[in-house]
Design a protein around this nucleic acid. Structure first.
Lengths: 362, 362
DNA sequence: GTGAAAGCGCTAACAG
DNA sequence: CTGTTAGCGCTTTCAC
């Protein structure tokens, strides 16, 4: 049987129901004026023919595909697979679907954008990937709203939604300081990405305010991955020349997990006794028993809502706002990879609180 | 600025280039007969106008959207996020994109299919979700190929690609037996899913062949999730009435990880000394230092290739094959959660071998 | 409330 | 090789 043999159209349904084709269209368009009686006739005919409206065809006239492109640069980091899941769910609830575009981590997504454009998507969300200003303006020109999730292009007119990464970096520095650390190490992510840069910057700034010298802060790249951080950690702590850091900040949780495993299983270090560690993101994986990671929570649901609201999918006539970029602040979640300083009263990151804004958004 | 203000069409390009509109169409259609010179003229005009062909419009005539629907029921299991990533990458290489449909784990995906149909996708891949035979035949009727990934509907005409789960279950049983276990426990997944059922069946069958009584095999549901298995493990091993199992089979790796953490961190058990554990899937996460999970590797790249080949996206005229269902066998990856039986020569699951077919498919 | 008719942006014969 | 001409399946005026 050849494909597309019997895909029935609104004309077929119209014929069967004894109405005009436009009546069929109306029957399936919420809010259009049609008598309940005719609508039922149409529905019955449609059911008989297994008719499903062709939304591709309708988008030709409506100029809306109900498809949102999600460009994602690092599916290996669970943080982003949770983000993807959350977006997909929320969008589905509004009758839209996510079209995925994967790009290599750290790669330019300019080429991807070109493909995105072909599909006439209603909006695009870009996460964990680079993008040139030229591309954002191409989207703007065609009236396609684009928002950078957890990323921004300095000096661009593209909107961005992100956690206040610099402030988060400061929070971690603060925690280390309170716990008495004097020597520090960082495992950084994508050196070109603003996310990693900002976290690093905040962290270092806060440390420097307390008189820590930059030379007392070791810095190694971990490629934003578990494996990369695993090796990076080995590199830092094997090096006998340096005085051993007492505190390690991995700029995201998945790297913190990799570092912790390397430290424990390869180097036999105890955490936090021998070394304190912190991450960033607060992915559910970091909350698990072996890690109990102290971290900064990204307010993911808030960020997603903000993204969707900037996209403003419901009102295509609204036009594109000039880029807005309001960082949302995260908060420190205190678990077990930094010793609680004596006499210090920290907000605890116990599970009651932990559920507040994270994970599934349902 | 209102959206869709200036999306230029092939007519605009044609006018600027001084050719007919069909020439523009040809210029962007690989393999169509057009003079190199005119093609260049068209390209130049297109560039000036920022023209990108509207693939939605073209699909109206070609009957191909270059979109493949992926219905996914359990994004929380890393196995499936790896699967998603792999599909997306491979499909992208062929110039196609993945449209995501998330359904609640274990839920019927019948409603999702209805939405899929609207988008006129070229094919659908269904993973970790239930589907009625009625829906598969609806797809068949309209000539949309559908393949069930790691799932099958007994007695259905839908094609399926899966690991030989029953055989895999037997492999685990075999390993436990070789290591001298006498009492067993299982943590199962979605009770309605064939995947969990088959793994359990193979496991139990093999055990029974060796004279193990069904009553010596404890069975608890773990909801296919880390957390579910964490709690399930606690339930099994807290119960003082039962003689404590010596071997625990979690029917997927993510549950094995949850169980291991519960056992170690809550109950203080050592693995494999106090209890041996095995999983299924061979997700990269299970290879990490804290787990070193003995498991059955799903030949994910083979499975993906098989799926794509059944979908046969390149040849829409071919018609849909009557359901085929050829399980691909997985192999046991021996790591550290089952003690290696003395004198037994097992194929080791060291990393050289581990890279053979798994993870990124690049 | 309903039908007729004109497109949406593109591809696919069909002549030339 | 190139232009002309029909549509693809649907939405949307516009009369009635």
């Amino acid at each position: 049987m050849a494909r597309h043999s019997n895909r029935s159209t609104s004309f077929d349904v119209a014929a069967l129901a004894g109405v005009s084709q436009s009546a069929v269209s109306r029957a399936f368009t919420p809010g259009s004026s049609i008598a309940e009686e005719t609508r039922q006739k149409v529905y019955e005919a449609a059911r008989k023919l297994n008719y499903v409206p062709n939304s591709i065809a309708s988008s030709l006239t409506t100029k809306r595909t109900n498809i949102v492109a999600l460009i994602i640069g690092n599916m290996a980091n669970p943080f982003y697979s949770h983000v993807l899941h959350a977006f997909s769910q929320k969008l589905q609830e509004q009758g839209r679907q996510v079209l995925i575009f994967t790009v290599d981590p750290g790669a330019e997504s300019d080429e991807a954008i070109l493909h995105v454009l072909k599909y006439q998507v209603d909006g695009v969300i870009l996460t964990a990937a680079q993008l040139s200003t030229r591309m954002t303006s191409m989207c703007h020109d065609r009236g396609i709203p684009i928002v950078l999730f957890n990323r921004y292009i300095p000096g661009s007119d593209a909107s961005g939604v992100r956690c206040d990464n610099a402030a988060g970096g400061r929070l971690i520095a603060e925690a280390f300081l309170a716990a008495g650390a004097k020597n520090f190490a960082m495992i950084t992510g994508d050196p070109k990405g603003s996310t990693s840069q900002d976290r690093v910057r905040g962290f270092v700034e806060r440390l420097q305010e307390e008189g820590v010298r930059r030379s007392d802060i070791t810095e190694v790249g971990g490629q934003s991955s578990y494996e990369g951080a695993f090796n990076a950690a080995l590199g830092i702590f094997r090096d006998k020349d340096r005085s051993r850091p007492e505190a390690l900040f991995a700029i995201n949780d998945i790297m913190a997990m990799g570092a912790i495993d390397a430290l424990r299983y390869r180097l036999g270090l105890r955490i936090p006794e021998d070394l304190m560690v912190a991450g960033f993101d607060d992915i559910p994986e970091g909350r698990r028993a072996p890690y109990q990671l102290t971290t900064v929570r990204q307010p993911i649901n808030q960020m997603i809502d903000a993204t969707l609201s900037i996209l403003n999918l419901d009102d295509p006539s609204s036009g594109i706002e000039p880029g807005i970029d309001q960082p949302i602040s995260g908060r420190l979640i205190w678990r077990n990879t930094i010793p609680v300083p004596a006499g210090h009263r920290w907000e605890t990151g116990k599970e009651e609180a932990a559920r507040a804004d994270t994970g599934s958004s349902k």
